[in-house]
Structure formats: structure tokens, C-alpha cells
Design a protein around this nucleic acid. Structure first.
Lengths: 345, 345
DNA sequence: GATTTCATGATGGGCGCACCTCATTTATCT
DNA sequence: AGATAAATGAGGTGCGCCCATCATGAAATC
């Protein structure tokens, strides 16, 4: 069921403005050699007719192809695997849109290597999305890339003082605060200690979550105090050990917040202790594991950042930047999702 | 920064398959008159080369224009106004995509009028999105529309037994359950009554929320019981009155769930009573009012369904349906957002 | 008045695809 | 084998726009 339904074309604008198609085209594409007065006539016609260029036609005519590169961490926790998969889907979806995506994986925790990888991308890509370590060397590499005319966005973890065009990801301080408020309220007025399982402070996002969390617990739940016993390095087994120590060594433990990956290990430790139901456990990233943990009642809430949204948003932002099109800021904001047992998607 | 970077075209596929462009075209567009064997050869070539039709070119060549109609309730609570506004934005965004949207507002609570309005749309639109009352007359009208070859999706509130192609909205039973779990847990083990402020049972969504809410409170929080004293009809003042009665007449009130609109009225009542902080208050839809109420600490959580997502999703689903393109189910699922003070966007 | 500069029109060649026609080849059936 | 039907090729047109070239006319310069 389709009908031609003549829409307004450049042709119509030209006629309305009393100029030739060529001139109308010159005006719309900002080419030189048109009198100011004529420019205004054309613009007035555009406004009067409500002309919107046909994007499909424009893209076709331009025949531009944008080349994007996504740089993700090699050491793959579940979230990063999800993200990589979503980037794959985004790439697929972009094939119909004059753009394609290459995916590169590097050891993000090695600033030198990450920086060198980034430097190599200049000239080979029009846009780069990178899960970046906030390190001077990396920041410089990003700035160089931008200097070389490449659009750069940071993904998941930001490098605030760099020249990146955009940060696609959640506000991790707010995420930490969210976890704290939920944990505090779920604890229901009990007082005691809340265990903090930190991943690694290397990526900025973890440090920020931790900051936000402590801030709220300290400031708003006078009955609670934060204790941390060791890092998980985002590994399941390490996380399990840390959780186990918390459960056994902290007598007044009321809850537990895992900043990074390894929720499954923590769930194991809690269930082994027999206190899974009574302890409040909040972590990040909705995966098969955390979903099951929520349903079993081991976890009480999961803070999530949607990998698919971030991947698509990064692509949209990069393309808009490349093509010089405007983007709807509002729509590109990544939300901090809260999942409990009842609102699982 | 653009480069031609020859992508794979139908031309390439034809060459690879050893057929003419015409035949490749016949296969790809499912036209008759091609031997099964040849079809396979072409499809194999498509797979081998990873050919994806250039959407821009296809749309341009088809020159199709899709006409969509969104039917929203006339009586405008805040959410419906948000939705209408988002539909406007969606319409704007669609102008570059060979499609446009008309917005119609009717009194949804008058089944006859809604049904007649729907009937009039046949033949004039390719797709219709409707916030529908679940009523036999309306269901019949929807089925007629579908029978007339119009793609129909229900929006926000479903009509399950109709022939609509899709329901774009949240699972309202789950939303009610979510509210109940949050309320129960935020109440922190206290026992007593939770007040239910119902809007109106006319729209299916409210009834479902109420059902899910009661189910969880009854089943999982033995210390709590649900009390309801009158309907708000989604009006602020009525909601205020109901809340006031709850606060003054229910001595053991620990919290309050507002199923529909009118949160501002309830906030007013709670603050007037001086018990705003102590009572748990959960409602729906993130608006300026509820946002402020969260920040003030009057509300404890807001369950939200994103109007923008729903509007865009409905448009995408309708267009995909019209054009016979596949759609990513996964991506079109509307989530139940939970907002607390700390994760406000 | 002749020359230079500038503004504009006219025109054509794509981009990749959809859709149509007509001729030609190939398979199928009496 | 000959007739008939089916499958395929060749080619053209147009979608709306971008971009380039060339010609033309008018205004500005000397």
C-alpha cells in the first residue's frame, strides 16, 4: 500500500523562489556565487513550503561511506562480551546505511598499547568509539586522533579532559548513588556494615561508582558504614573470595555492593553462607547470571547500562558528527536502568 | 571525510551469480518467473558477497510514502501530553524518511466514538497506532481496519484479542508488581496498610497494574494489606482528596501507590499531613511534578514508560509492517523504568 | 565602450535500485 | 519436430539530490 503522494522537492523550492534548480542547490549546499538577496529568496521559499531534503536521495547522491572503528577491551567480562555482540548487530544494521564498523580489541589496561592502537586509526577511519582508560598517554592519543580529523567518542568509561566529541555512557557517580540508596532502603532501617566489592580502579567508571556509593551511604544512612576487603579484578573467583571474607569476617554485614563484574561468584558465596536472602546484594549489568540471581532472590537489584543502546548511540553520534547532521542530544542520553525481579525485560 | 569505497551492489551479485541484473532483481524482489535453481544461485551469491541492499537507494526508487495516524485520548493528563509531543517529534523525524504522521485526538472513554473514528481511517492511512479502550466495539473496529489492509498497533493500552499487529507498551501487570515490591521493601519490614489510588478501570492498563500490585502485596508481604478508598479519575484534585482520606482514615498506613495520574495532588496531601517522609509513595510517569517530588523526598520511586520510545517504536513497527521489512523484536520492547532520586535522567 | 567579474541558468552525469517492456533463449509438452 | 510456455537478458526510465561544466547576461571596473 503505497502512493506517490508528491512531496516537496528542491524543484518545487526553485520554482517557488523563481530561481533555477542549480541556484537553489547552491544555496542549500552553501556553495559560493549567489547574491545575498537570492539566498534569502530561496530560504524563504524553503520555509514557506516546509521543504525537507530527502535524506535517502541525498545519501545516495553523496555516495559517502563512513568507516567507524570500535575499540573494546580484550579481557572480556560478560558486559564487554554483550557490548561486542551489540556492536556486531549495530554493524549489521549500518550496512544498509552507507557505513560500516570494524571492531578492535585491545588490552585496555595497558595505556601504551591502547594509545598506540588509537594512533594507528588516524586516516583509516572517519569515526572511533573507544572504551578508554583515563590516562595521560591515552588522552593525548585521543586528542591526536581528533586533531587528525577523526570523530571520537568515549564509550562506557570517559576521558573527561580529552577532545572527544561525546561521551556515550552512564553517569557512574549517579549509578553508585543509585546502588547506595537502593541498598540502604532495602536494608530497611537496619544498621551495620555494607560490603563493597571493587573491581579495579583502573577504569574511571569503577572509581566513580565507588565514590557515589560511599557518598550516599555515609551521608544519608548514618546507621551504615562501608567496608571493603580486597579487589575482584572483575573475576568471578576473586569476587567470590572477597564476598566470602566479607560474610565471615564482618559480623554486622547487612548488604553488599559489587562495583564491577563477577556477580556470579558473589552469589555463590552468599548462597554457600546460607544468608543470601537476608543480605541485600546489589550489582551491575543484567546478564543471564544476574537475571537468575534476581529471580532466585539472591540479588535484590541490578543497575544496568544497556549495551545495545550504547552501541547504537555511539554509532549514531559518530555518523551525525561525520555527516555534519544535528543529533538529538536528549535521545542519546544513556539511562541508568534499575532492574528488580519484577521488571525484568 | 568521505570516500567512495565501492560497496557491493546488485550489479556485483548478478555478475557473481552469472545472471543478468534483471534476473537478480527478480529474485531479490520476489517476482515470479525465475527457475528455482537460478533463485538459489542468486541467493548463494548474495550470501557469499554479503550483499545488503542500499536502503537509501531502494526507498528513493520506490518513492513510497507511508501515511500513519496516531489516535490518542483527548482528555489530556500529563503523560498523554508528553506522548502527543513525542509523536510530534517522531513526525518531524519521519519527514526525511518518506513517511508522515497525522495525530488525532478522541475521547477514548467513549467506545462508540473511538470505534467510529477508527473506521473512518481505513483507506486514508497505511498504518494506525491507537491508545485503545478494550471494548468489543473498539475491538471490532480494529479488526475491520486490519481487514481493510491497514497495519494497526495498540499503544500504551492493549486490546489483546484483536487482530492488531503489535502492542507497543509495557506489561502493566509487571509494572504493578514492580511498584508493590519496591513499596514493600522500602517499607522496611513495617506492617500495616498500603493505600491504593486507582485512576479508572476503563483503560486496561490501570486494571492490570492494580492486579499486579495487589498480587504481590498479598502474596509476598504478609504484614501489609491493600486498602482503596475511591477513584481519582486521573485528576489531581480527586487524587488529593483520596490521598487525604487515606492518610486520615487509615491509622496504620505505611505507603501509597497511585496507579494513574494525579501524583501532584497526592504529594500535596502528603506534605499537608506532615508525614510525607515517613510514608512510602510510589506512582507512575516521570514528569516535572514527579521529578520534583522525587527530589523533595515525597515520592520514593516512579515507574515510567518512556513516551518517546513508545512513539518511535510504534512508528518503526508500523513502517516495518507497511514495507514488509523485518523488525528487531528485541529492540521494540518497551521497558518498565524505575526512577529514584539518584538515577533521574 | 571594452573588459573583467559576478550571478545565474542550462544541462548532464551519476548514485543504487525498482519496475517495466520487449526480444531472445531454453525447457516442456503434445 | 514443432508448438507452446517458461525463463532470462538487454535496456530504458525515473526517484531526488549532488556536483561539475559551460554559456549567458548583467553589473562593475577602467
Amino acid at each position: 500500500m503505497s502512493r506517490p503522494l508528491s512531496r516537496i522537492t528542491l524543484q518545487d523550492v526553485a520554482r517557488e523562489a523563481g530561481v533555477s534548480l542549480a541556484t537553489a542547490d547552491r544555496v542549500l549546499n552553501g556553495r559560493a556565487g549567489v547574491r545575498g538577496q537570492t539566498v534569502e529568496r530561496v530560504q524563504a521559499a524553503v520555509a514557506r513550503l516546509g521543504y525537507r531534503p530527502n535524506l535517502a536521495a541525498a545519501r545516495l547522491a553523496r555516495g559517502e561511506t563512513w568507516r567507524l572503528c570500535f575499540v573494546l577491551p580484550a579481557g572480556s567480562n560478560v558486559f564487554m562480551r554483550q557490548l561486542a555482540q551489540q556492536v556486531g548487530l549495530t554493524a549489521e544494521w549500518l550496512k544498509g546505511q552507507n557505513a560500516y564498523i570494524d571492531l578492535v580489541r585491545v588490552d585496555v589496561f595497558a595505556p601504551e598499547e591502547l594509545a598506540r592502537t588509537l594512533e594507528r586509526l588516524a586516516g583509516r577511519y572517519d569515526g572511533v568509539a573507544v572504551v578508554a582508560l583515563d590516562h595521560p598517554r591515552v588522552r593525548a592519543a585521543i586528542d591526536d586522533l581528533v586533531g587528525a580529523g577523526v570523530a571520537v567518542v568515549t564509550l562506557v568509561s570517559d576521558v573527561p579532559n580529552s577532545q572527544r566529541a561525546h561521551y556515550v555512557g552512564i553517569d557512574n557517580i549517579a549509578a553508585g548513588r543509585t546502588a547506595a540508596t537502593l541498598l540502604g532502603r532495602f536494608a530497611g532501617g537496619r544498621s551495620g556494615s555494607v560490603g563493597l566489592v571493587v573491581g579495579t580502579a583502573a577504569l574511571r567508571d569503577h572509581a566513580e561508582r565507588q565514590f557515589g556509593f560511599s557518598q550516599v551511604i555515609t551521608g544519608e544512612f548514618p546507621g551504615l558504614k562501608v567496608v571493603a576487603l580486597g579487589e575482584s579484578f572483575d573475576e568471578e573467583e576473586r569476587a567470590r573470595q572477597v564476598a566470602q571474607r566479607l560474610v565471615s569476617e564482618v559480623p554486622d554485614l547487612v548488604g553488599l555492593y559489587n562495583v564491577g563484574a563477577g556477580n556470579r561468584g558473589i552469589a555463590t558465596a552468599l548462597e554457600a553462607s546460607g544468608r543470601a536472602k537476608e543480605l541485600v546484594f546489589i550489582g551491575h549489568d543484567l546478564t543471564d547470571d544476574t537475571r537468575r540471581a534476581l529471580l532466585r532472590g539472591v540479588m535484590d537489584a541490578v543497575i544496568n547500562q544497556d549495551a545495545g543502546h550504547q552501541s547504537r548511540s555511539a554509532a549514531r553520534v559518530l555518523l551525525a558528527h561525520c555527516a555534519g547532521e544535528p543529533l538529538m542530544e536528549e535521545q542519546e542520553r544513556i539511562r541508568i536502568d534499575i532492574f528488580i525481579r519484577d521488571n525484568l525485560p
